[in-house]
Design a protein around this nucleic acid. Structure first.
Length: 568
RNA sequence: CGGGGCAUGGCUCAGUUUGGUAGAGCACCUGGCUUGGGACCAGGGGGUCGCAGGUUCGAAUCCUGCUGCUCCGACCA
């Protein structure tokens, strides 16, 4: 490919709409253009990178006997109604109606479709295990698309599904995919970490997220440096902290004017924050009010809370809902609320003595609240969010926290979809059983963005070789100079013959322009054909990653670069 | 959905407070000159100022409504 023919319009200035590096750089370097909120065109450079990522995925999944197929994007509502997810997905699903008024959606994921396919064809355990996958656009009408390709409404996803006859088979399929994913992200050159994640609505399902470590990541990751524990913060379990025994004092109502936040209350009453109880009020999709109690210095883990209450969605409660259950925002506690409220207390709260909590009355709190005595009937559970320094759930050492971008997830589904859709097979004994399923996703377009988040500098992108749009760019300082162009053309031909993915920047622009573009787009290696080195029959090699330069004779340049690419 | 901000040529923005008929830099076209880090000179093209109403002799500017984008909070690959 020659740059003069390449459609890669670069921008000198950063478009105002972009906030994070990957978004800014993909716009500037001519990788993407926005068409609508969360919807982008992939230009040739982006498409080359995406195809390279996809190819790596294909090779690794097929090494585990996965087979690629293509499921439809347009999907009938009936299948989704069979599993109940037509309602569950809610606003996030792009829905459409055809001329006969039949309902469809644009696929946000494909469990329904794939299970429907398999239930009609798989009859016997002899046909198992089965691993099917596809790579295509997915559609989710996100509340708030942002960060360019990191959270789009249309995005490219690899989704795979395994079908097994028993748990042991599922364990094997899961392990296979876990290994394949580790290889995929390693081959893409990414620094990543598989972390334990929350199984969500499917109870205690086993699931791992593959997370690329990056500042701008939206996931909070906790990890332990002592052992190999790593988990999504919302998943991590916490031990109960038992406060030292104290004699229970009588409950006392105290005036606390203008003290609404827990810090203000603690300061006002001169009480350590560890002896206060914080109430956070949510409401679920049925508008039931849920009062979550944690120690004053702790935070509520809303994912855990959602699982425990079985809520489909949880939002912060409105003031009207709070007053309906007899509470006053800012002065909440379970003491004195009516029966319409669901109270969930963190296990640590129940072990506290003589604590401070709200009095459900403007400007009043209680002192000496003893949860076991005073809080009445409450659900006790682990609903606290882990924080830096909390003990590691495995070994007890203080945990660290970091941010990550979730690029993949492996999930043991079990029989959730096969039971809902009646996908069964006959086992060795002729007995009908539901298929045991697993599902495995990779955000392909997000992986591209994550790579940029992880590898860039003030001059532009720094692609890992494996997923760079081109591995090498040849830059003749002056494309109007015949001697230079002759060398450049020779190198271009040599490298193509050597199987190098090479681009020739034959534009008649000044050298500075071509250098700036090369850095911005981030080709791993740049070859400069310079009049200075012409007499020696040499050219310069520059590595994008560390800026190292060296010179090499023209006749061995291609093989030198070929070797060099293996080590970058 | 709640809360901020923005909308003027392809891009970045000025002009809006105090109405008077649209401007800069970059990009683009032509010619010249130039080639190791986003050159220079000369000439040129391109905008019904997001949309719809209204006020006014006159609206990018004032008023009303809408739309789109974007950032901060609850979802997800």
């Amino acid at each position: 490919m020659r740059t003069s023919k390449l459609y890669a319009p670069t921008l000198r200035q950063t478009p105002a709409e972009a906030e994070v590096p990957s978004h800014q750089l993909m716009l500037r370097a001519g990788f993407i253009r926005k068409v609508a909120g969360g919807v982008y065109t992939y230009l040739p450079l982006a498409w080359r990178t995406l195809r390279k990522i996809e190819q790596i995925i294909r090779e690794e999944i097929e090494a585990k006997d996965g087979q690629e197929l293509a499921l439809p994007i347009v999907q009938p509502a009936e299948l989704w109604k069979e599993t109940g997810r037509w309602a569950v997905f809610g606003e996030e699903m792009f829905r459409l109606v055809d001329r006969h008024n039949r309902e469809f959606c644009l696929g946000p994921t494909h469990e329904e479709i794939i299970t429907d396919l398999v239930r009609n064809e798989v009859r016997s355990y002899k046909q198992l295990p089965l691993l099917l996958y596809q790579i295509q656009n997915k559609y989710r009408d996100e509340i708030r698309p942002r960060f360019g390709l990191m959270r789009g409404r249309e995005f490219i996803m690899k989704d795979g599904y395994s079908f097994d006859k028993d748990e042991a088979g599922l364990d094997k399929s899961y392990k296979d995919m876990y290994e394949a994913y580790s290889k995929i992200f390693s081959r893409c050159g990414l620094t990543f970490r598989p972390v334990e994640a929350d199984g969500g609505a499917i109870g205690n399902a086993t699931t791992h997220e593959f997370t690329v470590l990056a500042e701008t990541g939206e996931s909070d990751i906790v990890y332990c440096e002592k052992c190999d524990y790593a988990a999504n913060a919302e998943k991590s379990e916490l031990k109960v902290i038992v406060a030292p025994e104290e004699e229970a004092l009588p409950l006392e109502k105290v005036h606390t004017p203008n003290a609404k936040t827990i810090e203000e209350v603690a300061t006002f009453l001169d009480t350590p924050i560890e002896k206060t109880v914080k109430a956070v009020i949510f409401q679920n999709e049925k508008e039931q009010v849920i009062c979550a109690l944690v120690r004053g210095d702790h935070e509520v883990n809303d994912v855990k809370l959602q699982n425990i209450t079985g809520a489909i969605s949880l939002t912060m409660a409105e003031d009207s809902a709070i007053s309906k259950v007899g509470g006053v925002a800012g002065f909440m506690s379970p003491i004195g609320l009516n029966k319409d409220v669901i109270v969930v207390a963190d296990a640590t709260v129940m072990e506290m003595h003589n604590a401070v909590c709200g009095a459900n009355e403007q400007d009043y709190h209680y002192k000496n609240a003893n949860p076991k005595r005073d809080f009445g009937d409450v659900i006790v559970a682990d609903i606290r969010l882990i924080a830096e320094g909390d003990p590691c759930p495995h070994c007890g050492a203080p945990v660290k926290m970091t941010h990550g971008i979730e690029v993949g997830q492996v999930f043991k589904l079990g029989t959730k979809y096969s039971e809902a859709l009646g996908a069964t097979f006959l086992d060795e004994n002729g007995k009908e059983k539901p298929l045991i399923m697993g599902c495995y996703g990779i955000g392909v377009s997000r992986t591209m963005a994550a790579a940029i988040e992880q590898f860039h500098d003030e001059n532009g992108i720094i692609w890992p070789v494996a997923i760079a749009p081109f591995e090498v760019v040849i830059v003749p300082i002056n494309a109007k100079d015949e001697a230079q162009m002759q060398i450049a053309e020779k190198l271009y031909a040599d490298m193509k013959n050597a199987g190098i993915d090479v681009l020739l920047d034959d534009r008649k622009d000044r050298a500075g322009v071509k250098f700036k573009d090369a850095d911005l787009i981030g080709y791993p290696v740049r070859i400069t054909v310079s009049p200075k080195l012409l007499d020696e029959n040499e050219v310069e090699i520059k590595v994008r990653k560390d800026g190292a330069t060296s010179t090499v004779k023209v006749n061995i340049c291609a093989e030198t670069v070929k070797e060099m690419l293996k080590t970058l």
